[in-house]
């Protein structure tokens, strides 16, 4: 089993619904976020293109944050989800520094926090909150090992890219272009 997410940049309007749904679902404190929107503008007027991306932890197969954690708080569970055990985290911030995606933030209560792919929902067979809220249906989640999963189907007939492939992290967010 390998959980992953595909983000359709052709559909995303950058509304931030994924961000606020994550905030209410996971009780993320105000001023912080586990997911966010990136807008890339290229070209010059009037030949301009925009790419909008809903980004979060890439739940990397080769996760630098896990490798650099001194206490083992950052770890990988079944399905490849990268998690932080709050009680074991000393808030040193090494993982924050090591992440090429800036996916982690220091929670005001002293631990490092990040996207969990909404494991509490996924364990019950639901999608992460961001996926289920998105008005444009631009987020696709599921098990890459299952060819019938939403994410497998989304990746099948589309071109995609990953972010910072040169970092060798083997990220599991796929951006449909």
């Amino acid at each position: 089993m390998r959980y992953a997410m595909a983000i359709d940049t052709k559909k995303c309007v950058g509304c931030g619904d994924c961000v606020v749904a994550c905030q209410t679902e996971n009780n993320v404190p105000h001023g912080y976020c586990r997911d966010w929107i990136v807008e890339n503008v290229s070209g010059s007027y009037p030949s301009v293109q925009i790419e909008l991306r809903s980004e979060r932890c890439n739940h990397c197969d080769n996760a630098p944050c896990v490798r650099c954690c001194p206490t083992g708080a950052s770890h990988i569970v079944e399905g490849g989800i990268v998690l932080v055990t709050h009680d074991e985290c000393i808030g040193c911030g090494a993982c924050i520094e090591s992440c090429p995606y800036d996916a982690r933030y220091p929670h005001p209560e002293g631990y490092v926090d990040k996207c969990t792919f909404c494991k509490h929902r996924v364990d019950k067979g639901q999608n992460p909150a961001c996926v289920d809220v998105c008005p444009t249906h631009c987020l696709h989640f599921g098990d890459l090992d299952d060819p019938n999963s939403d994410v497998s189907k989304a990746l099948k007939n589309r071109k995609w890219k990953v972010l910072a492939p040169e970092a060798g992290t083997e990220p599991q967010l796929y951006f449909l272009t």
Binding site: N27, P29, H30, G31, Y32, Y105, P108
Partner: peptide, 12 residues
């Protein structure tokens, strides 16, 4: 409360 201010403000 500004973005990233370590306020610890918690909704609940």
């Amino acid at each position: 409360i500004g973005i990233n201010a370590a306020s610890g403000f918690n909704l609940f």
